[in-house]
């Protein structure tokens, strides 16, 4: 996701964590305000292209080698590269968070990675191999050329919300409040309980593979409904947007609730 998605996910999580959890992570992250999760939600992206942070560049995705729209599915052994992927990273950084022998700075970084990667695994194109998660597919968006990955990361959500694009934190906060209401008493009320079924703290791979497979299924149904070649050069801000927007809302809501 772009900043808007990551920050919204963090604010949704802030709305559902227990008091004890809030105090625990405020301590670990050194931030006593309501922005303690939102303020670090994009940190992993900010270090990704720096020299020292380069080790983490492959941690944001898993390249599912499936065949959309005919066949979707993620296989951990087949798809997670030797130097890591979003699923192995969630395992690694969750276990670092649970290891009280590590230095506080290590656990602080682990928290920032977990907060970010729970978000990324819910973006369908972070769980897809085709054209590097859609980065190599040129499409049109409101008459301008973009790559498909960027459209799913940012453009669709930004169009949904409208308003001033520069006010990312305000927009994310507002979006998070709306989605929190939908989870607590709106359209997600009944299904949200099942979003956290079968969470296993001692088996982060199994847990995040459920999330990855769910996310990847949207690659077949909504990202490439007619296959990857049919979308090249298409204008996506119309009918395609109308179908994709509810998926993005749902995935952001789920990511926030599951992160909490």
């Amino acid at each position: 996701w772009g900043s808007l998605g990551h920050i919204a996910i963090a604010y949704i999580a802030s709305n559902f964590v227990k008091e004890n959890t809030e105090a625990y992570f405020q301590g670990l992250l050194g931030n006593d305000t309501e922005h303690y999760l939102a303020g670090v939600a994009t940190w992993a992206d900010s270090i990704r292209y720096t020299k020292w942070g380069r080790f983490s560049k492959n941690f944001h995705f898993i390249d599912a080698k499936d065949d959309p729209p005919t066949y979707c599915g993620v296989d951990f052994v087949r798809d997670c590269k030797e130097d890591g992927c979003v699923v192995s990273s969630l395992q690694n950084y969750t276990s670092q968070l649970l290891d009280s022998k590590l230095w506080p700075w290590q656990r602080n970084q682990a928290a920032k990675f977990v907060i970010h990667f729970v978000g990324d695994i819910h973006q369908p194109l972070h769980v897809e191999n085709v054209a590097q998660g859609g980065n190599g597919i040129h499409v049109n968006w409101q008459g301008h050329e973009f790559n498909l990955h960027h459209v799913w990361d940012s453009s669709i959500a930004e169009k949904m919300l409208g308003g001033n694009r520069r006010k990312t934190y305000d927009n994310a906060f507002r979006w998070a409040s709306d989605l929190t209401d939908e989870i607590k008493s709106g359209k997600y009320l009944t299904e949200s309980a099942s979003w956290i079924d079968g969470l296993l703290l001692d088996d982060p791979i199994a847990t995040s593979m459920v999330w990855a497979n769910e996310s990847n299924a949207y690659v077949c149904s909504h990202v490439f409904p007619e296959g990857p070649t049919a979308i090249i050069g298409q204008e996506l801000a119309g009918e395609y947007f109308e179908k994709a927007a509810p998926v993005i809302e749902l995935q952001v809501a789920k990511a926030g609730y599951r992160l909490a």
């Binding site: 964590v17 649970l98 009280s100 969470l199 703290l201 609730y257 909490a260």
Partner: peptide, 20 residues
């Protein structure tokens, strides 16, 4: 729910999903 589980484990508290 993931952060709740982590905080519970580290605080020696209960392992259920609490308020969620």
């Amino acid at each position: 729910a993931w952060l709740n589980l982590i905080a519970d484990r580290m605080s020696g508290g209960e392992k259920d999903l609490g308020e969620l």
